[in-house]
């Protein structure tokens, strides 16, 4: 069987890719995708831990379901906010959304 640590390394790598996406991307939609990658890394972590170490109760799976549901709600709100900005300014590039500073 694939050892647990491989899953954890994969999750950590996915998380790092997500953070990189958030920091380096300029398009708000792409930043949102980075956030989704980070949340999926969390889910992978939780599921791997649950399957290998704590499969005698359902806590880990319940946690994953909660994260999935909340992430869906969060993305819905995020996309709505992006659309409301796009309607006003015809751009979703983070650097051009700069009315508020200092």
């Amino acid at each position: 069987m694939v050892p647990l640590s491989w899953y954890l390394i994969l999750a950590a790598a996915l998380f790092a890719v997500g953070i990189f996406g958030v920091l380096a991307r300029r398009n708000a939609i792409a930043i949102l995708m980075g956030i989704e990658l980070m949340l999926n890394a969390v889910n992978l972590n939780l599921l791997a831990f649950w399957r290998y170490l704590w499969s005698d109760n359902l806590t880990g799976v319940v946690f994953v379901i909660m994260v999935l549901a909340v992430a869906a709600a969060e993305v819905a709100v995020g996309l709505a906010l992006i659309i409301s900005i796009y309607r006003r300014r015809s751009t979703v590039v983070a650097e051009e959304i700069d009315l508020l500073k200092w």
């Binding site: 954890l8 998380f15 997500g18 953070i19 958030v22 708000a28 930043i31 949102l32 956030i35 980070m38 949340l39 890394a41 969390v42 972590n45 939780l46 791997a48 831990f49 170490l53 704590w54 806590t59 880990g60 946690f63 994260v67 969060e74 709100v77 995020g78 906010l81 992006i82 409301s84 900005i85 983070a94 959304i97 009315l99 508020l100």
Partner: peptide, 26 residues
Amino acid sequence: ESGLKYFLFGAVTTAVMLYGFSLIYG
């Protein structure tokens, strides 16, 4: 604009916090 900024910062920091939660559970 403030809504979007709040959302992006909030979602990222929450994801980092959740990663910590997943390690605690694990």
